[in-house]
Structures are given as C-alpha cells and as structure tokens.
C-alpha cells in the first residue's frame, strides 16, 4: 500500500470517528441539561475542552452559550473539529483513496457528508438537533459496519482501524478528564449535590454508550472508582482505553516493519496497567491522563515516521 494512501485512510478513520464522537457529546449534554436544576447546571462550555478545541473557540466567540457552542461544534466552517468539517475532511481523504475503499463505503460517506451540509441549519435548531445528530451517529455506525463486513483485511483496513481506535481512545480520556473536574472538586455531600453528581457520572457513561453495559456487567449503582476502572481497564468494552489500545496494537502488529510504533503502544499499556485508579485524586487523575495523552501523541508520531509519506523522504 502506498504511504500516501495509508495516511489518508488513517485520517479518514479518525475524522469519521470524531464526527460521531462530537455528535454524541452534544446529544448527551442536551439530555444532561434537561435533568439538572438551573443553578448548578454544568452548561455547555465543558464541551470545548473535551473536543480539544480551546484555542479554536477563543477565536470564534467569548460566550460559551448553548447557541454558540453548538454552532461551533456542528457547523462552524473555521472549526477544524466541527462535525461538518470532520466529515468534509473524511470525504476529501476518501476521495483521494477512492480506488482502495469499497465503492458503497464511499457512497455512504458522501451521502452522510451531503446530509450534514444540507441540513446544518436544522441541526442548529433545538427542535431539529436531536434528529440531525442521530443521523450523524447512525450514519457513522452504518459506515463502520459496512466496512467491517465487506473490506478485505489488508493494510487499508488496518490503517482505518488504527485511526478510528486512536481517535476513540483520545476521546475517552478527554471526556473523563474534563467531566471529572466538575464532579470531583465539589465536596458538598448534600443529597441534591450527590444526585446531581450521579447524573453527571451517568452522562459520562452515556456519551460513551456505556451506561447499560456498565449497569448490567459492573454495578447497578454509580460508583466513581468502578466507572474509572470500567472506562480505562475493561478489556471487553469497545470504547475503553484498554480495548482501543489493544485494537490498535493488533492492527499495527499486522503491518510490516512495526517494531517502533509497537514499542510506543507498550509504553501506554504499561502505564495503564500499573495505575491503581481507585487512589487517584483530581490532580493525580489529571496528571495520569496527561501522560496517557502524551503517549498517544508519541505513538502517532512513531506511526507517521514509519509509514506515512513525508515530502523529504
């Protein structure tokens, strides 16, 4: 497989996943807002750091209101991480590698992009938002399902899977990082506050489609350390860090000349396995997540150096 093609597929995988993740975040936050009393409502501003877009938002608006945040995340032309742009970049990447991906996958992505573009004004209304986001999420899932069922398991498949899983891993770390700040600082142990915290923990689980599995397999009660354990260490949950990293490792292992990217993955895994999550306080959790995120970036660099086309090679 051409290096340039591998790179495009990797990024397409990331962008499709990013669009879906952003749609989930907005959706879950909308529900969370409905469940929380006005005074202690977490608002919309947390979605910006979760999406890793602090700088970009600063240039866009100084008002983290529902309207601005949603417009920024769904349809802003200048926000590289908006749903619209993520799908646009995914499509551009697919377009440059159209010959190696299934024709039906291209059509599906093309249709999804056209939908997101043509209906963006509906997506920005309170009434139309949920349906719009639902189409983005199910469109992305259909696309993944389609590719999983028809793609030949060659390098194209593996680079796509690496891109998707890495993006997913990053998102899981960011959701926990940003949301936990809100929940862990508050030392108010009153009944209202506790039940509000529970709602927030549940919303974390819901943003990752984890709520029902968590209740069925782990605990009916919402418990901080078992949630962290689940989201970081559970090997069977597809959005847990451990699972995402293992998928990446499996796919990288199928590629030629993989020792260096594999090594950087093992660094992440060691860190993850050694960490006792129960003992983490707000600041140590934060530092731990920073280290994991740094590890992910280092893996990306190793991958790029080994496989992608640098113009000066």
């Amino acid at each position: 497989m051409l290096s340039r093609v591998a790179e495009s597929i990797y990024w397409a995988g990331r962008y499709i996943e990013r669009a879906e993740n952003t749609a989930r975040l907005i959706r879950v936050n909308s529900y969370l807002m409905l469940d929380t009393p006005k005074g202690i409502s977490p608002g919309w501003k947390a979605l910006i750091p979760i999406s890793g877009l602090n700088e970009e938002f600063k240039n866009y608006s100084n008002d983290p209101s529902e309207r601005d945040v949603i417009k920024f995340l769904i349809g802003d032309q200048k926000n590289p991480g908006s749903i619209l742009n993520s799908l646009k970049y995914a499509r551009e990447n697919f377009r440059t590698v159209r010959e190696v991906i299934p024709r039906t996958a291209w059509q599906k992505l093309n249709t999804l992009f056209l939908y997101s573009k043509e209906n963006v004004s509906t997506g920005l209304t309170q009434k139309g938002r949920d349906k719009y986001l639902d189409r983005i999420i199910s469109g992305s899932q259909q696309l993944h399902g389609l590719m999983a069922s028809v793609m030949y398991r060659d390098e194209a498949w593996h680079f796509l899977r690496i891109g998707r899983s890495i993006e997913r891993a990053e998102m899981t770390t960011r959701i926990v990082d940003v949301r936990s700040e809100n929940i862990l600082t508050d030392i108010d142990e009153s009944f209202e506050s506790m039940s509000f915290k529970n709602i927030q923990w549940i919303s974390i689980l819901k943003s990752l489609s984890a709520y029902s599995i968590y209740r069925r397999r782990i605990d009916v009660r919402v418990d901080r350390s078992s949630i962290l354990e689940f989201l970081f260490h559970d090997k069977l949950f597809p959005r847990s860090l451990a699972h995402c990293i293992a998928s990446v490792e499996e796919s990288v292992g199928m590629l030629a000349n993989s020792p260096s990217p594999l090594k950087s993955l093992r660094v992440i895994e060691n860190k993850l396995n050694k960490q006792n999550l129960e003992k983490l306080k707000l600041d140590t959790l934060h530092a731990f997540i920073d280290e994991i995120q740094l590890g992910i970036r280092r893996f990306h660099n190793a991958l790029e150096k080994q496989y992608f086309l640098s113009p000066y090679k």
């Binding site: 497989m1 051409l2 340039r4 093609v5 159209r98 010959e99 024709r103 496989y307 086309l309």
Partner: peptide, 30 residues
C-alpha cells in the same frame, strides 16, 4: 480514481514514485 479502482491498480501521484540508481521506477509503500 474510477479506472484505478476498476483495474485494481494503484492510483499514484508524482510524489509517490521515484527513480533509483538502477534507473527503475519505484513507489513508496508502507
């Protein structure tokens, strides 16, 4: 893209190819 896909051939850009000392053409792959 369409023809490359239909033929199962690689679709390359200039930067994907180079000519080595042996005067043969190569493509940069993973």
């Amino acid at each position: 893209a369409y023809l490359a896909h239909q033929m199962g051939a690689e679709l390359v850009e200039g930067r994907d190819l180079f000519v080595d000392k042996d005067e043969c053409v190569y493509m940069r792959t993973v």
